[in-house]
């Protein structure tokens, strides 16, 4: 039986879809059978992030309303054998499906896949309730900004009220240099405030923009720090114990030398 994980954040634009694509791709790279479900009906995005936008025939609403069979709507990834996408409908709205239908869909997907990763829309309304309905675990994405962390706190409260206990946190777009200079909240600051477990930290990285432009996931890029961070997160999702990256270490010889002679 597979595991259903919802990726949520409350605030828009913090990297839910990018995170969904990368965790899913990372798990598939490890040989897992994965399906990514885009529940952002009307604002479909996961397909373009994955570079699968030209292959869509049927969507989530078609499946739950019985217009097609589940198998017909699932899109196989171009490169990774185990990776599949169930796209959102673009021309419908969030009321086109119900939490009960999502629950049923997740139960079906669990029979076939090891990981069902659900990309939740921004907000706390119907779309959010649909997305979490069938989930067993939750991952909350935030960025080191007051607004994003505030919304994450609200979402954590709502998840716990919906019996999704102990959500895990991903801090996205962190800039280690700014944290060191005291101009950005760091990992400890955010964890301290939200009082949740940390699943991983993604550094701000131009490679995310570049790979997303091409419709590829940065997790497949072996040379980028964000790719490594996502690969580590995927390993943690499977239960492996992987330490959180120390970005200072990754910043090169000169920085380390400066630190050594106390110029930090």
């Amino acid at each position: 039986m597979g595991e259903v994980i919802v990726i949520t954040s409350g605030k828009g634009g913090v990297g839910k879809t990018t995170t969904t694509a990368n965790i899913g791709t990372g798990l598939a790279m490890m040989g897992q059978k994965v399906v990514l479900v885009d529940t952002d009906i009307g604002l479909r995005n996961l397909d373009v992030v994955l570079g699968l936008e030209n292959r869509i025939v049927y969507d989530l609403v078609d499946v739950v309303s019985g217009n097609c069979r589940l198998r017909q709507a699932l899109i196989r990834d171009k490169k990774l054998e185990g990776l599949h996408l169930l796209p959102a409908a673009q021309t419908r709205d969030k009321n086109a499906i119900s939490p009960d239908q999502m629950l049923e869909l997740c139960a079906d997907l669990k029979k076939e896949f090891e990981y069902i990763i659900i990309d939740c829309p921004a907000g706390i309304e119907q779309g959010f309730r649909n997305a979490i309905a069938g989930a067993e675990k939750a991952i909350v994405v935030t960025t080191p900004e007051v607004s994003a962390v505030r919304d994450a706190d609200r979402i954590i409260g709502l998840l716990e009220a919906a019996e999704l206990r102990e959500p895990k946190l991903i801090i996205n777009r962190i800039r280690p240099k700014m944290v060191r200079q005291g101009d950005m909240m760091g990992i400890d600051d955010i964890i301290d405030i939200l009082a949740v477990d940390l699943l991983g930290v993604i550094p701000e990285d131009e490679m995310i923009v570049i790979t997303t432009n091409r419709g590829e996931a940065v997790v497949m890029d072996q040379n980028s720090r964000s790719g490594l961070a996502y690969r580590n997160i995927a390993r943690r999702v499977t239960g492996e114990d992987v330490p959180v990256l120390d970005f200072d270490e990754a910043e090169g010889f000169f920085k380390r030398l400066k630190k050594m002679i106390g110029m930090k």
Binding site: D153, V179, G182, M184, I193
Partner: peptide, 23 residues
């Protein structure tokens, strides 16, 4: 490095307060 004027400290303090109200 605990400069209370740094923008990070300001952010954390504002966040702390807004969450006290929210919660």
């Amino acid at each position: 490095g605990r400069d209370s004027g740094s923008s990070k400290t300001v952010a954390k303090e504002r966040l702390r307060l807004v969450l006290v109200h929210d919660r």
